[in-house]
Simulated scan of single mutants.
Amino acid sequence: MRVHILDDYFDTLRQLPSFGRLADHDVTIWTDHVTDPAALAERLRDAEALVLFRERTEVGADLADRLPNLRLVSQRSVYPHVDVEALTRNGVLLCSNLQLDAPSSAAAEHTFALILAAARDLPRQVASARAGTWQAGVGKSLNGRTLGLYGYGRIGRQLAGYGRAFGMRIVWWSSEAGRARAAADGEKVAKSREAFFAESDFVSVHVRLKEATRGIITSDDLQAMRPDATFVNTSRAGLVAPGALLAALEVGRPGTIALDVFDSEPVTDPNDPIVSHPRVIPTPHIGFVTEDELDLQFAGIYDQINAFAVGKPINMINPEVWDGSGR
């Protein structure tokens, strides 16, 4: 099959062991990012299979309707960036292994790195050292401080383990069902939503983005945090209500915000009001970008292509498209 892979910014995938699974296919890798559907359709005009690099490119009707040769879109995890109806209308199968409980430490590790960076004010300290002015203030120890985790899922539980290793107190908030699971597991659940935000030194959100969770973190939530507290989001930008981050920064509650996700990506404007803010620690959506994690994720994506090629597709999201003919 003619396979096109989008948005591999650093041409990483071909260097990983899993890439060998595409040996029987004609593979094209694109390392830049194109947003214009017409330009994207032109470069993908001969593609039979399209591999998506997480949610970096949106596949809407304006693209799907322009790709008459496309038979398969293969990706991993959730797919809010894919117009499944448009793919189905064009006879294109979407395969995606949701891997809801797959072992992965990359996102949890990056989240805790941001917590450490915020606690010790590392960006400012590094800048001060490079400027020749040596130290730039005093940081905070994690031992004895409270880590508030919003969302009782796999990544949150991994973070809880990291926090406990540093001597932190762990407190949870989540949906009613999530809070019940946490309590049943013997975890400490905050007495109220307000108390959760007000009493945590660090709040990190780990919830899947869907219609019910969009904007679930409000301005009131953020502004209930203390001026010496930190809010961390490595999940999805859409979990935070529009305008809530800037409003929180304006009033200084919380005092620090650490982000790996943004409303519109990539962010390339150095004057972006969020990225450029002195009390924001921004990273460019790299929570999952490690060699180990990419090899794990793309091995499954390639397996979906191979299964389709031999007429036995797996992880079908719109199975009504599949009639056994390969089209």
Rank of each mutant, 00 (worst) to 15 (best):
V321I: 10
R253H: 09
D272A: 00
A224I: 11
L52Y: 00
A195V: 12
R179V: 04
L87V: 11
Y162M: 13
R76S: 13
I286F: 07
L222M: 01
A195K: 08
H25F: 05
N306C: 11
V261L: 03
V59T: 14
L22N: 08
E265M: 01
S105Q: 12
G215E: 12
N315L: 04
V34C: 14
D36Y: 07
E176T: 05
G243E: 06
S175D: 07
T28I: 14
L147R: 15
G137L: 00
I286G: 02
A190H: 03
L22I: 09
F262E: 07
Y302N: 06
A118I: 06
L6E: 05
H4S: 15
D221W: 08
E55R: 02
L222N: 04
K312Y: 07
R226D: 06
V27G: 08
D228W: 03
R253W: 08
A47C: 05
I305T: 07
Q125P: 03
P17I: 02
R193V: 09
R179S: 03
R236W: 14
E293R: 07
F288T: 13
A113H: 10
V138E: 07
P68W: 12
S77N: 15
A113G: 09
D121I: 11
L245Q: 03
E250H: 07
G287V: 03
E55D: 07
Q15E: 08
L67R: 12
H25P: 14
T88S: 04
L249T: 05
R169M: 14
D260G: 05
P282R: 01
L246I: 14
Y152R: 15
N233A: 09
P242Y: 11
P313E: 00
P80T: 05
G238Y: 02
S264D: 14
A224P: 04
G156F: 06
A113F: 10
P103N: 02
E48F: 00
L52C: 01
T256M: 06
T230R: 01
R157P: 14
A299K: 13
F298E: 04
P103M: 04
N69H: 10
C95M: 04
A177C: 13
T218M: 02
A180D: 11
L72G: 08
Y162Q: 13
A38K: 12
F308W: 02
Q223H: 02
I217E: 04
E109K: 12
G243I: 00
E42M: 08
L246A: 15
H277S: 05
W134L: 09
S105W: 13
H206L: 12
I274Y: 10
V138P: 03
A190T: 11
L294Q: 03
A224G: 15
D7S: 11
G144A: 10
L294E: 00
H25A: 04
A49V: 04
A299L: 10
P270L: 01
G178M: 02
A258D: 14
G148S: 06
L67H: 03
G255V: 02
A47K: 07
V267L: 06
V171A: 06
D121K: 12
G91H: 06
Q304M: 09
D269A: 03
L50W: 06
L159Q: 03
L294G: 06
V171K: 01
G215Y: 06
L159M: 15
D36G: 11
L93W: 07
N233T: 14
M1A: 08
A229W: 02
D32S: 09
P270E: 06
V78Y: 05
A184T: 04
D24G: 15
F298W: 09
S200H: 00
N271F: 11
